[in-house]
């Protein structure tokens, strides 16, 4: 029938064209075990989805072509059928099976992603603080801090401890794995790992106000030796971060890359602000109020 053909004709060049446009980047280019787990899950589900699409589209096209009104069937009166219990059971059962086939690996992966992909290597911890509109990375063990870029050793699981000073952001490095929110007064944990040295793009995936689109950062994965060398270099050459500079950094706006030879965790951990029963812990809150980070955007510019 006309419609079905039209659709087919339309879809072919569309797919070809899209195929030409799609570069294998980001989600389609997994560069670590976490991203690969997710990529495999995605591909597994796409297989089933294509199957469903093929079945539905085929039935759809066949029925449209066969049962259209045409001069030859002017006398045909469609049967008055109520339904067909057997068929209905079949098309209830098959989706249940498909959902089960998807649910099992989903649950497995969802649990697996909360743990480091390998137990052979000791993970490193990096605190990530999202602020309007920059990313601050603190290395508590190495005692260094970077802004808008982060170095990690390849082959080592990295526990990113996420928090925010202000609007909710989402920490996403698609080539290394899926995201998690960074929220004020909260700490969430995202574990990622890079297979090999390289540079990976990260960004905020949750809208956080005016300059949100510019909240990008670079993840530089290095060999263990290079990473240690970089840490040592930072400790030797980078300036110290003090509270005044830190308050400046938190002010809404964009900043370039920065590097410091200590961390802001010395005087404030935003993840521990505003939690339960915080009487007596109000020192940090005063900081929060004074730092001027709440001067958001204004309207009608």
């Amino acid at each position: 029938m006309k419609r079905a053909k039209w659709r087919a004709l339309l879809m072919v060049p569309l797919f070809l064209f899209l195929g030409g446009c799609v570069e294998r980047t980001a989600v389609l280019n997994p560069q670590g075990p976490v991203a690969r787990t997710q990529y495999d899950l995605i591909m597994w589900s796409i297989g089933f989805m294509l199957l469903i699409i093929v079945v539905v589209f085929t039935l759809f096209a066949v029925f449209l072509i066969r049962y259209r009104e045409k001069p030859e069937n002017a006398d045909y009166e469609p049967p008055d059928e109520e339904g067909n219990t057997l068929l209905e059971i079949v098309w209830t059962a098959i989706p249940i099976l498909i959902v089960a086939a998807l649910a099992v690996p989903t649950v497995k992966a969802t649990f697996a992603l909360e743990k480091p992909p390998t137990e052979k290597v000791k993970p490193i911890t990096i605190h990530v603080t999202a602020a309007n509109w920059k990313w601050i990375f603190s290395y508590p063990e190495e005692n260094i801090e970077t802004v808008n870029y982060v170095h990690i050793p390849a082959g080592v699981p990295v526990k990113f401890k996420l928090t925010s000073v202000g609007p909710m952001n989402s920490f996403w490095v698609p080539e290394l794995g899926g995201q998690k929110y960074a929220m004020d007064g909260m700490e969430t944990e995202l574990i990622l790992q890079a297979d090999k040295p390289g540079s990976y793009m990260g960004r905020s995936a949750n809208f956080s106000g005016e300059k949100f689109a510019h909240m990008e950062f670079e993840v530089v994965a290095q060999t263990g030796a290079d990473f240690r060398k970089w840490v040592k270099e930072v400790k030797q050459t980078a300036p110290k971060l003090d509270e005044k500079t830190y308050t400046q950094i938190l002010k809404p706006g964009l900043v370039g890359r920065m590097t410091f030879s200590n961390t802001h965790l010395e005087w404030i951990d935003h993840a521990k602000q505003n939690s339960h029963h915080e009487n007596g812990h109000s020192k940090g809150r005063e900081h929060q109020r004074d730092d001027g980070m709440s001067e958001g955007h204004h309207h009608g510019e």
Partner: peptide, 26 residues
């Protein structure tokens, strides 16, 4: 029917939590 099926199956993909970490807000 066909258009909604495309939306529906991608909805199932989004429903898979571990994979959703890669689709979310994209």
């Amino acid at each position: 029917i066909p258009n909604f099926v495309i939306g529906g199956v991608t909805g199932v993909m989004l429903a898979m939590a571990a994979a959703d970490y890669q689709y979310h807000n994209s």
